[in-house]
């Protein structure tokens, strides 16, 4: 079993501004642990985490992929989260390039079809639409109607960014209607599977995986 990344440098005060790893984060780590063989075979040259927050997931994935094996990009709209990711990368000796941006703004068209591994723990919580669009910690969870507003904005980018062999992983809850998301992605040319699922309090969490349908 791989150790959970060391987050001891992040204090209570940091978590007022940056999403603190919780059940969804840990399920994501467990999913990547299940995927170790696939990820090593995939040998991604460029990876991208959207909304990296504390940086816990990217530090974990970085450990799986190994030093100097992959250019690891992260984005976050929250400047404090971007800096938390940086601190976590350093603390865990994983090299990461962080970009402060909204989802993947600024990466296209240069990185079109170049990302081999992409993952996103999106703001999936059902909230009023007005709560979407913050640049602080709320951006980590506020998902608007059906918790889908940010997810739906992001889905069209997947087919543009992923390389031919690329894989995309995403956390969702039951209320996000995972089957509907899989259907949307199917129409974009992706096969999907559920890598992991867990009941955490009231939330039923899923980790979805998408790869391009073989031609």
């Amino acid at each position: 079993m791989l150790p959970t990344p060391d987050l001891s440098h992040l204090k209570r005060k940091d978590y007022e501004f940056v999403y603190e790893p919780a059940e969804d984060t840990f399920l994501f780590l467990d999913a990547f642990e299940d995927e170790v063989y696939f990820l090593k075979e995939l040998q991604p040259a460029i990876s991208l985490e959207i909304g990296s927050g504390s940086g816990c997931v990217t530090a974990f994935v970085g450990k799986i992929l190994g030093e100097s094996s992959c250019l690891k990009y992260c984005t976050d709209i929250n400047p404090k989260a971007a800096r938390a990711t940086q601190g976590t990368a350093k603390q865990n000796k994983v090299s990461v390039d962080i970009i402060e941006t909204h989802l993947v703004s600024g990466l296209l068209p240069r990185l079109e079809g170049q990302i081999d591994l992409m993952y996103f723990n999106p703001p999936y919580v059902l909230t009023p639409s007005e709560e979407v669009g913050s640049h602080s910690v709320e951006a980590a969870w506020a998902g608007g109607i059906d918790g889908r507003e940010v997810i739906d904005e992001f889905l069209p980018y997947i087919k543009r960014l992923l390389s031919v062999k690329g894989a995309f992983y995403m956390v969702v809850v039951n209320e996000n209607k995972p089957d509907e998301i899989r259907e949307i992605m199917k129409n974009d040319g992706f096969d999907s599977s559920v890598v992991k699922t867990r009941l955490a309090g009231r939330e039923k969490l899923f980790i979805l995986k998408f790869v391009r349908t073989a031609a």
Binding site: I77, P79, A82, R83, Q86, I98, I99, E100, T101, H102, S105, G106, H135
Partner: peptide
């Protein structure tokens, strides 16, 4: 101009 601070480029518009 996109500013880079603390090693982090800010691409927000």
């Amino acid at each position: 101009n996109y500013i880079i601070r603390d090693g982090i480029p800010n691409m927000l518009l």
